[in-house]
Amino acid sequence: MSSIDTPAAAPVRTSRLRRILDSDIYASFRSSRVTMAAAFIVAAMMLAALFAPLLATMNPFDPAQVFLMNASLPPSWLANGDAQFIIGTDDQGRDLYSAILYGLRVSLAVGFAGVALAATLGIGLGLIAGYFGGRIDAIIMRIADIQLTFPAILIALLVDGVVHALLKGTSREDTAFWVLALSIGLSFWVQYARTIRGSTLVERNKDYVQAARLVGLPAPLIMIRHVLPNVIGPVLVILTINLGLAIITEATLSFLGVGLPPTQPSLGTLINIGNQYLFSGDWWIVAFPGTTLAVLVLAVNLLGDWLRDALNPRLR
């Protein structure tokens, strides 16, 4: 056993694991089969996205592997299907299964990047507003109030439009990913800021913060090292729920044609392409990416719902 080398480390590790296994949250996780299924789906999709190049039968973005003669082939079990393309091909002859894997990768990446940006921005501004109070607080929260009157998708559209106008001259391919992440980040920061500000206002007056101030620690250090760990809890729920929203937002923007270009398609882009062939009866081009997106978002939302209920004892 390796614990012979580090006798102290082993007990600590097991006790931490034990603590997680004994907790109420884990118990409620185990007691909900739906939640476990959702967690499994989310994990599986993330792994599939991560290892897309290994799992895909071809690289759908390598022109050398894509042939137009294979365009719009139905799934392999239908007449005219080709065993090589298990769920058919799109209008350009790309294998749909591989395209979905790569699309999932893009969708999840944009989602995570957007949520990370939103959380960083929101947590930062919330901490500053709550810790300093006064005029800074008033200005930040006023902006939040005003932004909250607009639906996130509208903000995202505006940011997308404005940034692309400002970046005029650069090719859309290079910037689309980061513009999308920025749009999502700027659309969803308010909720984090409000939550963090609320709890920071409470923490600010506690003894340990006052003590840190008296010792003369600089404000940023107090905020990050002392206040942040005590107010970060509820953010976990918002993060999960926001991930679902961010994925939907990305897909919507891409579907509306202002997100990712067809050359690096996300699930939304694939659905947009498929939608154009719906009337010609090529249902599979839209059906499979659509189902993938719906299942992914549903699973993420189920996890978020469960997490919210499990962490909020009043609802139990």
């Binding site: 679902g244 939907i248 897909a251 919507t252 579907f255 509306l256 939304g268 659905i271 939608n275 719906l278 249902w283 839209v286 659509g290 997106l293 719906a294 978002v297 549903l298 939302n301 189920l302 719902d305």
Partner: peptide, 17 residues
């Protein structure tokens, strides 16, 4: 829950189809 999770445009496409 499905209604909240399905993106609006997917619902539209589904209904159209």
């Amino acid at each position: 829950l499905i209604g909240v999770s399905l993106p609006t445009f997917l619902i539209g496409i589904l209904l159209i189809y």
